[in-house]
Design a protein around this nucleic acid. Structure first.
Lengths: 118, 118
DNA sequence: TATGGTACTGACAAAAATGTGAGAAATGAG
DNA sequence: CTCATTTCTCACATTTTTGTCAGTACCATA
């Protein structure tokens, strides 16, 4: 996804050798990842089509891309059933669930602060 | 910064009417914002030149841009002294400081999880 | 008069992220 | 045979973010 030649590119190993914050950011950044994690926190196990419905507004291409990223980073698990038409279920992994506290705090902070004019 | 005509643009009001998470993300997203907040959490009050030194690697243009964003969102405070050569100090606002718990948790989560191969 | 330090600004370009729209594969229902 | 359903994939275009690099303004100091 990133070009290795780019001056401003940090590859996986570089990121993982950095501070914890950098890794957390790298794993959560992406316009829809937190939404997806939120839906899976609420919904437990969801089919692709259910996620698609819940994330109305996001393009299919991006939904798939973000799901792939989240799976590659070990935050969600994908299970495909050999049926026709296909059925694929997504759910949080243990690692994904361990973000729950942080996600809740971020949400709460936003609620508390979003209206405030400094 | 964003074009109002863009399909995928959410303006400030729209974001603030959304869930808290969306607001939190909108305020923290930007490649260097969390680093800057981290430095200010550690360092208290810092001059522009000190921030510049600490964020070696980030271009000056971006550093300024992110400082402006953070200030506009009320997370940091800027104080300019009428001297020559100029002196400008930055520090966290109360709102900025209130992110401390979240930032620490994110950092800790990253440390705990960055090495793990799912 | 020239120089140097500090905190920026602006034009331009490259890179990254996201969107759009079309289509693929597999198979049971009609 | 044709169609509908589901989970994706691909080529291409646009939007957004970030980087590069050259300047600016101020005045004290040499």
């Amino acid at each position: 996804m990133r070009k290795e030649t780019s001056t401003n590119t940090l590859n996986k190993e570089q990121i993982e050798s950095m501070c914890g914050m950098a890794y957390t950011i790298s794993v959560l950044s992406g316009r829809w990842k937190l939404s997806i994690l939120g839906f899976l926190l609420d919904g437990g196990t969801l089919r692709y089509s259910e996620l698609k419905r819940k994330t109305a507004g996001i393009s299919e291409r991006m939904l798939i891309a973000q799901l792939k990223d989240l799976e590659a980073d070990g935050l969600i698990e994908r299970k495909a059933y050999p049926e026709v038409p296909p059925r694929v279920e997504y759910k949080l992994s243990k690692k994904g669930k361990s973000l729950e506290t942080i996600l809740n705090l971020m949400s709460a902070w936003g609620e508390d602060n979003k209206g405030i004019r400094p």
